[in-house]
Structures are given as C-alpha cells and as structure tokens.
C-alpha cells in the first residue's frame, strides 16, 4: 500500500470495524450491514455505489452525525465510536455545501479556527491561506448567496480544511454540479487533498470521479462492501 508521495503509508489512520447502521421506525432499515475498512494517513479512499446502498450512512457514522447500532470507529488506536462529533476532528464536505447563510465567505472559513479558539489575526491568515489553496483569492468578503455552485463547494472544502481535520469526509461533493465543471473540480480537489496531506473518505456514485480522486476505490452495494 502506497501513500500520496510514493511512501508506504504509516500504520493507523481510520479503522472501521463491523459497522452496522439501522434506522428504526415502522419499517426498520439496516442501511449498513457490518462494514470494515481502513483509510491510511494521507490516503484518499472512495466509496462507490448506487444511491441507497448505505454509503452516506456509513460516512455519517464515521463522522458522528449518525449513531451506529454496533461496530467501532477508531483513529490510530483511539476509539471514537461514542465521542461527540465536534471532538473527533473529522471534517465533512456536504453535497450542497451547507455554507452558513449568515456569514460571508471568510466567516465560513474562519468558523473552525474560531471554535478552536484561534486568535483573530491567526484566523485571518488561515482564511487567506485557504482561499489561495482553493483558488478563490479576494472573495473573502463575498456573501455566500452570491457564489456559483463550483465556488460554493470550493468554500465548503476550504472551510473544512481550515479546521485542520485529521480525516476529511466528502459526501458526493460534486454531484450538484454540471458534468464539465465536475471533471475539472475533481482534479482540483484531488490536488488540494494531496497538497494538504489530509486523509479523505469520499462517497460518490460516479466511477470516473472516484478513479480521478482516490488512491483506492471500494464498491458498496446493499449495505455491504463487495
């Protein structure tokens, strides 16, 4: 197994073991049925599968937005299954960005550092740095409602990276965009992830996107890896 720079990946990273996610209700659904996987340091792994195969539920359980019925999520040797979302240091890029409507672009990107108690000056520097990384220099004061679809996803990516996550979860980050833009942005996102050396778990239904962005592609069907 080789990492982004050709070096052998360090042991550890994300380890998911026998994860099960069920949704209770009148018709209980078992969305994830015992999945185990690993993501090494600096590695990007894609989960590829049709909609409804359980890949987003799996991602939610890793990040902490979904509570698993059983199984464990661990980083290196640290068990995280019962750790609240905000203490896992796992970032998430949502399908439709989920930018905060009451904050401008810079305010969105600075949110993570602000939560971490970073000083105002250091925050501003971090915002400038990430705007440069995602290619949106000078747009810090822009209202998020004035952004194009591609710009929104770039801001969402910058916002997640600004919080210095150890793992970045990307939930169909490009599927809301048109196909030409998607191909171009997929390459950009790949380059950004590599340059930041962050581990990433990408959920997508687009095989081309998975091949472009990931070191390794896992296929998922009906709640299981195949």
């Amino acid at each position: 197994m080789y990492g982004p720079n050709g070096y052998e990946t360090m042991p550890g990273g994300l380890t998911v073991t026998d994860l099960v996610v069920t949704y209770s209700g009148d018709n209980p659904v078992e969305a994830v049925r015992g999945v185990s996987l690993t993501v090494g340091h600096g590695e990007t792994v894609a989960l590829l599968g049709p909609s409804g195969c359980g890949k987003s539920s799996l991602l939610g359980a890793v990040v902490g937005t979904v509570e698993p019925a059983s199984g464990t999520v661990a980083w290196n040797d640290e068990e995280l299954t019962r750790v609240p979302i905000h203490k896992r240091r796992f970032g998430m890029v949502f399908q439709d960005g989920q930018l905060f409507p009451h904050l401008d672009v810079a305010g969105n990107i600075a949110f993570g550092p602000r939560m971490a108690g970073v000083s105002v000056e250091a925050r501003a520097a971090r915002v400038e740095e990430l705007l440069r990384v995602v290619g949106l220099e000078g747009l810090g004061a822009r209202d998020v409602s004035e952004l194009s679809g591609g710009q929104r996803q770039r801001v969402a990516l910058a916002r997640s990276l600004a919080a210095k996550p150890r793992l970045l979860a990307l939930d169909e980050p490009l599927s809301a965009l048109d196909s030409e833009l998607r191909t171009r942005l997929a390459k950009d996102v790949k380059a950004i992830l590599r340059s930041q050396g962050v581990s990433a778990l990408l959920v997508t239904h687009d095989p081309a996107e998975a091949e472009t962005m990931a070191h390794r592609v896992l296929r998922m069907e009906d709640g299981r890896l195949v």
Binding site: G64, T65, I85, H86, M92, F94, F100, S160, P165
Partner: peptide
C-alpha cells in the same frame, strides 16, 4: 446538516 456542519468544524452542541 447546517448544525452538523458546525459540529464537524469543532463546535459543541451549544456553540
């Protein structure tokens, strides 16, 4: 997911 986005950025439930 708006609140969830804030949580993944390190905000506690209250924040």
């Amino acid at each position: 997911s708006l609140a969830a986005a804030a949580r993944t950025l390190g905000a506690s439930r209250a924040r």
